[in-house]
Computed example of a mutant assay.
Amino acid sequence: MPQRLKQEVRERLIAAAAAVFAEQGFEKAKLADVAERAGTSPSNIYKYFADKEALFHEVVTPSLAGKLLRLLRARVRELRSIGNWLTADARGSEPARALLSFWIEQRFAVLILLRGADGTRFAHVRGLMVREMTRLASRYMIDTQGEAALSPLMCFMLERTFTRTIDTIADTLGAHEDAPSIQVAIDLFWRYQLAGLQSLMAPANL
């Protein structure tokens, strides 16, 4: 008689895997840890998923990664139309609110994409996010100040700034589980970051 698989067990395994992958990263995560978190045996996982990679792809999907990048681009592009960047936090910016809501709703998956996807098809996403933010910021500087504003040193500073941005977002999502704490922490970070970016990038007459 064929074995009947339970949807509740499958969902519990996916939830446990999301937490373990977010904490340890794909490469270091063990199915034994997932099974322990889910309250079942490692052998039971193979009744539902072929291997660790198959389980990972239930947690992180191409559509989810694509949405993260689209929201991020909208957030950075918005700065072109805002005079005072200090108003571009979640209270004053719809793209900022949408991005923050996505980070909160998909906390584990975002954490994985930001620092735990090595060894998977999504390993490039972190670097792509840094490059996209740097590219859009560079385009803004060229459009508002001319090619001369984008010196090699400025390019270096933008790349390092946005790399640290990714690290700070990941650290925040990793350190806080509840939405209010994440919102407050990100608000504090944006207050600091936006002031610095405006000082660094914006034309002197803004």
Rank of each mutant, 00 (worst) to 15 (best):
D171V: 07
E78G: 10
L128W: 09
R139A: 11
F162L: 04
L111I: 08
S199E: 13
G196C: 13
L72R: 07
A195T: 15
L68R: 02
R97G: 03
A96P: 05
P62E: 09
E159M: 07
L64T: 05
T161S: 14
R73Q: 11
A96D: 02
F156T: 08
L197P: 01
A117W: 01
S101I: 02
R77Q: 13
S199R: 14
S138D: 09
E58I: 02
C155A: 10
D178E: 15
L99P: 01
S63R: 14
I166Q: 04
T165H: 12
L68K: 00
G92W: 05
L200R: 08
E58H: 12
L99R: 06
T61Q: 10
L86E: 15
E177L: 13
I112N: 04
F102E: 00
G66A: 09
F102L: 03
H176A: 05
G116K: 00
A137H: 03
V60E: 03
I112F: 05
E177N: 10
R73Y: 02
Q106F: 02
F162K: 04
L113E: 07
H176I: 01
L128G: 07
I186H: 01
M133C: 15
L111N: 11
A90M: 11
I82D: 00
S81M: 06
L114S: 06
H176E: 04
A202C: 15
T161N: 12
R77Y: 07
V184P: 01
L173C: 05
W85C: 06
F122C: 06
L69I: 11
M201G: 00
A98R: 12
I166F: 01
A90K: 08
F162Q: 03
L158D: 00
F108P: 01
N84K: 14
